[in-house]
Design a protein around this nucleic acid. Structure first.
Length: 515
RNA sequence: GCUCUGGUCGUCUAGCGGUUAGGACAUCGCCCUCUCACGGCGAAGAUCGCGGGUUCGAAUCCCGUCCGGAGUACCA
C-alpha cells in the first residue's frame, strides 16, 4: 500500500511550491490506490504561526486536495502534529535508543561556540558543519560531568566516517556521498524538540510512509535521513526528489513574480482545476502531448517516471490560457455559480479591497475596489434579471480568462448607461450618418415576444438595410457607431447578439443621447 | 569555499543510438467576420550549454568544461 505525506511547517501561507508538493503526492496516491496523510511539522516554536494551519486546510479544501488522515480528520497514527507527538513522548525514547546503539550522542556546545567554529571554518575555507566538535568522541565521564553541571545539550546523529552513502532517487537515480562530507545533524534540540531531520523520518516510519516525495532542496540532507533509517534498522522509504518551481527569472519563486499565495489565485478568479492542471505540468508530463486534462486523466497518467529533474518556471500566461480554456467549456450557469462562490469568499474580498497595483509605464493601475464592485454588480443584477446576466456571461465567455474578468466584460450589459471610451466616441459617433442610423434603429424595434435568435436577425436586417440604403457596401460604418453607443467600447460580442440581449428599451435609452 | 544537482524553441515539455528534433503557451500572418475574442490554417522560433571521445550513426552513452540552482542552522 502506497502511503505518502504532505507535511508542511505552519509558518505562513500555503504557496505555489507547497501546492505542487501536495498535488504530486495526491495524484500519486490516487493513481496507486494509496493513502495521503496530512501532517503538521511544528517543531520550530519561534517560527510557528497560529493561523497557518487553518490557511492550509482552507486552501487545500478550495483546491480540492483530500487526505485520508490528518490533524483535522484524525486517523490511526494520531496525533498528526509533531508538537503533540513530542508531548506524547514519541521522539525522546527513540533518541535514547539511537544513543544506546552508538548512532547519536549528546553535544554541549553553546550556540556562541558553534558560531565561532563556523567562522573559523569559513575563514580557513573548510567545509562548514559539525564534524566532531568536542563531543562526538567524548568519554562517558565528560558527558556525565557536563550534564552534572546542568549544561544544556543537543543530541546529534553520529554519521559514520570513511564510507560511502548511497541513495536511490526515483527522479535522479543513484546519488552518493563521501560520508566525511556529511556533518552530524542535530536530532533533538536543547529545548527537547526534535528537528525536522529526526521528527520527519521517525514519523514517516511510524506512519508507514512508503514514498518520500519532496522538493529537491532536500537532496542535501537525504544521506542523513537514509542513514537514520539504517541506524534504527528500519526499511528506507523510496526517495523521490521533485524539481522546484522557480520564477520567471529562474530564481526561487517569490512575491515579485506575482502571487505566491495559492488563495490569491482563487481571489483572481482561477479555477482550482486550472491551477492544478497547470501546476501538474510543471515538472511532470504524461509522456505524450496531452495538456488540458481532466482530474481522472491526470490521476490515470500520473507516474513517478514522468517527473522532470530540472526546475520549471511559472508561466502565468499559460495558466491564464488553461483557465480560459476551462471557462469556455462551462455553461453560463456554471460560471455564474463560480462567480457567486468567489463573491462569498472572505479572502477574495479582502484581496481586492486591499489590492495595490504595481505601477507600470503607460498603464492605468488596477483599482481593486472597482474590480470588486463590478463583480458585485453581477450578483445584484442576477437577483433582478437572471436571464440578462446569464446571456451576458454566455456572450463574453470566449473572451475571458478569469472569473474576475467577467466583471469588466459584462458590465455594459448591466448598467443603465455604459462608461464611454472617449477615443471611440470621437472616432465613431461624430460621423454624419449616425443620428439617422440610430433613429432608424429606434424606429424599427422587433416585434414583442420574439425569441432571442429572431431579435438578433431582426437587428441584423435593420442594420443591413440602413447600410444598403445609404450607400455603404460594408457593415462597419453602421456597426461600429452602434456598438460604441451601446457598449461604450470598440470590442466585444457580435453587435446583433448583444442587441438581442439588450432589447429595444435599453437600446433606445442608450441611443437617445446621440440622436 | 565544500557537497549535491540541473542544462532540448522566449516558456512548459516529447524524445531513451538512426525523427525533416514532435506538441503546447506566448509571438507573427492568413481564414472566419461588424470589432475584439473563440475556432481553423500556417509561419517564425532549438547547430539539443560548450568541447572532446565511443559508434557506420549521438539530443540520446562516456569524459571534461562552462553556466545556473539547492544545501552548507538547536528552519523546515
Amino acid at each position: 500500500m502506497v502511503r505518502v505525506r504532505f507535511a508542511p511547517s505552519p509558518t505562513g501561507m500555503l504557496h505555489v511550491g507547497a501546492l505542487r508538493d501536495a498535488l504530486f503526492k495526491s495524484l500519486f496516491a490516487q493513481r496507486e490506490g494509496g493513502q495521503n496523510v496530512f501532517r503538521i511539522e511544528d517543531t520550530d516554536r519561534s517560527r510557528y504561526n497560529a493561523d497557518s494551519e487553518s490557511e492550509f486546510v482552507e486552501t487545500l479544501r478550495w483546491v480540492g486536495i483530500e487526505f485520508d488522515e490528518g490533524p483535522h480528520i484524525g486517523g490511526p497514527f494520531a496525533p498528526y502534529r509533531q508538537s503533540e507527538r513530542k508531548e506524547a513522548g514519541i521522539y525522546a525514547p527513540l533518541a535514547e535508543e539511537l544513543m544506546a546503539r552508538g548512532h547519536a550522542y549528546k553535544a554541549f556546545e553553546t550556540s556562541a561556540e558553534l558560531d565561532e567554529m563556523r567562522e573559523f571554518q569559513q575563514i580557513n575555507k573548510m567545509p562548514t558543519g559539525y564534524f566532531g566538535g568536542a563531543w562526538r568522541d567524548a568519554t562517558p565521564e565528560q558527558v556525565d560531568a557536563a550534564q552534572a553541571e546542568g549544561k544544556p545539550f543537543v543530541i546529534r546523529q553520529r554519521i559514520p566516517r570513511d564510507t560511502k552513502i548511497v541513495i536511490d532517487d526515483v527522479v535522479r537515480g543513484r546519488i552518493e556521498w563521501d560520508s566525511n562530507t556529511v556533518d552530524d545533524p542535530v536530532l533533538i534540540k536543547a529545548d527537547g524538540m526534535p528537528t525536522y531531520h529526526f521528527a520527519a523520518m521517525v514519523d514517516d516510519h511510524l506512519m508507514q510512509i512508503t514514498h518520500i516525495l519532496r522538493g529537491e532542496e532536500w537532496i542535501s540532507s537525504a544521506p542523513k535521513h537514509a542513514l537514520l533509517f539504517d541506524a534504527f534498522g528500519w526499511e528506507r522509504p523510496i526517495f523521490c526528489h521533485c524539481p522546484v518551481i522557480v520564477g520567471s527569472d529562474g530564481k526561487k519563486l517569490s512575491k515579485r513574480h506575482g502571487a505566491t499565495r495559492v488563495l490569491d489565485y482563487m481571489a483572481q478568479g482561477f479555477f482550482p482545476h486550472a491551477l492544478k492542471n497547470f501546476i501538474a505540468l510543471i515538472g511532470w508530463s504524461p509522456g505524450d502531448d496531452r495538456e488540458a486534462m481532466t482530474m481522472p486523466e491526470l490521476i490515470g497518467a500520473f507516474e513517478l517516471k514522468g517527473i522532470q529533474a530540472s526546475p520549471g518556471r511559472f508561466d502565468f500566461e499559460k495558466l491564464r490560457w488553461l483557465n480560459g480554456n476551462l471557462i469556455r467549456s462551462l455553461t453560463p450557469q456554471d460560471i455564474l455559480d463560480a462567480i457567486l462562490e468567489l463573491l462569498d469568499h472572505p479572502h477574495a474580498q479582502a484581496y481586492w479591497e486591499n489590492f495595490v497595483d504595481e505601477p507600470m509605464p503607460n498603464q492605468v493601475p488596477v483599482d481593486g475596489k472597482v474590480v470588486w464592485s463590478r463583480l458585485e454588480l453581477i450578483r445584484t443584477k442576477f437577483a433582478e434579471d437572471p436571464e440578462l446576466v446569464l446571456a451576458a456571461i454566455r456572450e463574453e465567455q470566449p473572451r475571458v480568462h478569469t472569473l474576475v474578468e467577467f466583471g469588466e466584460a459584462v458590465e455594459f450589459f448591466l448598467v443603465d448607461q455604459p462608461v464611454m471610451d472617449e477615443k471611440a466616441v470621437s472616432k465613431w459617433l461624430t460621423q454624419p450618418h449616425v443620428p439617422a442610423l440610430f433613429a432608424a434603429i429606434v424606429a424599427n424595434p422587433p416585434a414583442p415576444d420574439l425569441p432571442e435568435a429572431d431579435i438578433r436577425n431582426h437587428y441584423d436586417a435593420v442594420l443591413r438595410a440602413f447600410a444598403a440604403d445609404n450607400g455603404f457596401d460594408k457593415l462597419g460604418p453602421v456597426v461600429h457607431p452602434t456598438r460604441v453607443a451601446l457598449t461604450g467600447k470598440t470590442v466585444g460580442p457580435g453587435l446583433f447578439e448583444l442587441m438581442a440581449i439588450l432589447g429595444p428599451e435599453r437600446i433606445a435609452a442608450r441611443l437617445a443621447k446621440w440622436l
